[in-house]
Nucleic acid binder design. Structure first.
Length: 389
DNA sequence: TCTGGGGTCCTAGGACCC
DNA sequence: TCTGGGGTCCTAGGACCC
């Protein structure tokens, strides 16, 4: 999808059509989540700090992100795609690979199939989409980038290298800032330059996995199939605070908040985590993670908070200012999985089950721990009375 | 300019087991 | 006396993507 967040915003605010629009960059530490093509012309791009975007494009309309709306729109997009073919591999909220080999008999050409998909998306979601078509996933992905905005590009079989080799190496899927810098040291500028390098040299400089993979891609080799995938491998939540947290009690309270949020998301997904990871970013932007793997997978805020506090003690010395806190679960197991018997009673499981039902009926903000029930009070002379959980 | 939030995959070292 | 070989799992960090 093209400038997805921006286009979803334009659906409910048509007056934004044709204007420079930036989603994100609202808070004191915001970054750009999406920029309209009008804003991109001024140099604004996603992941750019808000201040820089405002200077480059002061007349742009800045909007706070509404992820719930984007998830809704994404659902509609995937319904349309799913009606087109069953062979779909979602790549993100607004992107997917489709294996259209099976549609041969239904369309006169691959391009005709692509145009049909684009017009169905346009009609049913009122959102612009671009389509790239090729014999491999990776070339198709680059073709869709080249087709934007609101276009279609077919790279016919046999023409892959002709398409790939003039592209800047940064366009390769998997070449980010760090890899780009190392490739520049090797005098590499284009994808063709990568293909011309000896594979062994790339593997030595970039590691065998990355180096070998890039060499394959630059040579047009990509054997990966379109696969549906089996759901998420990790679920996590994190937050960057407008001002650093210093007070130890405040930091612990935020761990509790994350524990409740993560527990809710795990249970919503019908899953429990065997490994819990706490992430802490300090004021100097240095970031540490601490993780713990349990015998039993967990999906309650009670357990996540207990583990989170242990991890926090290992990750952060008292009083050290915290910029970001995050909590995540990996090693996900279906929550119905039989678990080792616990001799102690676990009353909070019933309690949190009840919370789920209340939130299901009255909304996610309907009920929660008392300690989180008011905005974090400024520490008034250290009179922070312990509140019940 | 001062760096979001949600993910995936890879690497490397160490513990542990037979 | 001073150190094998193969394997799995865990932990921490980093690169990358949208």
């Amino acid at each position: 999808m093209d400038a997805f967040f921006v286009e979803v915003e334009r659906l409910r605010r048509p007056e934004l059509a044709g204007k420079a629009v930036v989603v994100g960059g609202a808070g004191p530490r915001g970054v750009v989540a999406a920029a309209s093509y009008e804003a991109r012309r001024h140099g604004v791009h996603s992941a750019m700090p808000a201040g820089q975007a405002r200077r480059l494009c002061p007349h742009a309309v800045f909007l706070p992100p509404d992820h719930a709306a984007y998830r809704e729109a994404s659902k509609e997009v995937f319904e349309v795609i799913g009606s087109f073919t069953a062979h779909v591999e979602p790549l993100s909220v607004d992107e997917a690979f489709l294996d259209i080999g099976g549609l041969r008999l239904h369309y006169p050409s691959p391009a005709a199939a692509g145009e049909e998909l684009r017009s169905r998306l346009r009609e049913q979601t009122r959102l612009p989409a671009s389509v790239g078509i090729a014999t491999t996933k990776f070339v198709a992905k680059l073709a869709s980038e080249a087709a934007k905005p609101d276009g279609l590009l077919v790279v016919p079989a046999g023409a892959e290298l002709e398409f790939l080799h003039p592209l800047p190496v940064r366009a390769l899927w998997g070449v980010g800032e760090a890899t780009h810098a190392r490739l520049e040291e090797l005098g590499v500028a284009t994808v063709g330059d990568v293909a011309a390098l000896p594979r062994s040299l790339l593997e030595r400089r970039l590691g065998s996995a990355v180096g070998g993979h890039l060499h394959d891609l630059a040579g047009g080799i990509d054997e990966r199939e379109v696969e549906a995938g089996e759901g998420a491998k990790s679920i996590s939540t994190e937050h960057t605070y407008g001002e650093d947290l210093v007070d130890d009690a405040a930091v612990e309270r935020e761990v509790l908040r994350h524990a409740h949020h993560l527990a809710q998301r795990l249970r919503d997904a019908g899953t429990a985590a065997r490994t819990v990871t706490l992430k802490v970013r300090f004021s100097d932007f240095s970031t540490v993670t601490r993780s713990e793997t349990l015998g039993n997978a967990v999906d309650t805020a009670h357990d996540l908070y207990e583990i989170g506090r242990r991890l926090l003690a290992r990750a952060r010395p008292p009083r050290r200012p915290v910029r970001l806190l995050g909590l995540g679960g990996t090693g996900l197991e279906p929550s119905g999985e039989p678990r080792q018997l616990d001799l102690d009673p676990r009353p909070w499981e019933d309690l949190e089950g009840a919370l789920d039902r209340i939130r299901g009926r009255f909304g996610s903000d309907a009920v929660g721990p008392a300690r989180l029930s008011r905005p974090p009070r400024e520490p008034d002379a250290g009179s922070e009375a312990p509140r019940p959980e």
